[in-house]
Design a protein around this nucleic acid. Structure first.
Lengths: 153, 153
DNA sequence: TTATGTGCAAACAGTTTGCACATAA
DNA sequence: TTATGTGCAAACTGTTTGCACATAA
């Protein structure tokens, strides 16, 4: 179990309050979706969120998951990360992390606390762009794929 | 016109040679696709590459563009960048650049030569991961969207 | 009570694939 | 000559939407 001081236990109620104050209703489905997002330390696909949600609320539909994620994205509570075909979602976590993405097998590994530049809030001042979330990806080849096709490298 | 010292004029023949040496045939369609990729300083969608290609070779099909891009990705001559729904492609350019992505309107702006960390080749040594291409995105709100809905921010 | 959210199923958009024909080497 | 690439159209996958019903506030 994740024992991070930033686990969902401390962040979920605050998130619910923020959504309520913006006029969104808090349904059991949404609570389950929010929990699934905050409990997942990775970058789950919509399908993975859906599966996690159904453990609590089996009657939740995929469409509702999509709609709720869209709402949260609009409220900037979540960041949509496109990795190739499928979208993945990342609850706007306060700590930065980089991704190691294998171009051959598609594996996405996390690289916490390394190689990630601090988010330059100065960007806002210079370009008028308000930065919510910084993302760093390293595309390349994972060890397995390097070993499998040495001739191609 | 792009007057960069790294323009397609100097890079295209070398790219063609590399593909030939790997056993790929060089068809007129492929040349047009390669040129379109190298001439585009941004991160074109498949459709945009397709449109550019048709200016030279109107008979080129979309399927061929997809197939050629897949081949180039496998050969690591191009990086596929997923931004939300559609994929975009970036000829593996030797200079780093960051993206400013507006979560509301979807605009993607380039931020050359700023905020981009040098690609840590040390990653390879530590994790066995061979880095081909580093990517830095800043998700947030563009100036226009900040102005349009100040109440939501 | 009533504006908002849910669930289903149909519609969509982007991407991939199979196969007959064309062609680079 | 022949293995490889092309083009078409059909198939797929992930995502979005319309609408009747349910429900949080």
């Amino acid at each position: 179990m994740n024992t991070s001081i930033l686990s969902s236990h401390s962040r979920l109620p605050a998130l619910i309050d923020r959504l309520k104050q913006k006029g969104h209703r808090i349904t059991p489905q949404r609570v389950a979706i929010l929990q699934a997002l905050m409990d997942n330390p990775g970058h789950p696909t919509v399908e993975q969120v859906y599966d996690a949600v159904r453990l609590r609320f089996p009657m939740t539909s995929l469409a509702t998951v999509y709609k709720t994620l869209a709402m949260m994205k609009a409220e900037q509570e979540v960041v949509e990360l496109g990795f190739g075909g499928t979208s993945r979602f990342d609850a706007a976590r306060p700590y930065a992390h980089a991704h190691l993405i294998c171009g051959r097998c598609g594996t996405i590994a996390d690289l916490d606390e390394a190689g990630v530049p601090e988010i330059p809030t100065s960007l806002g001042a210079e370009h008028g762009f308000k930065v919510i979330h910084g993302r760093v990806d390293y595309h390349g080849l994972c060890p397995d794929c390097q070993a499998q096709n040495p001739a191609d490298l």
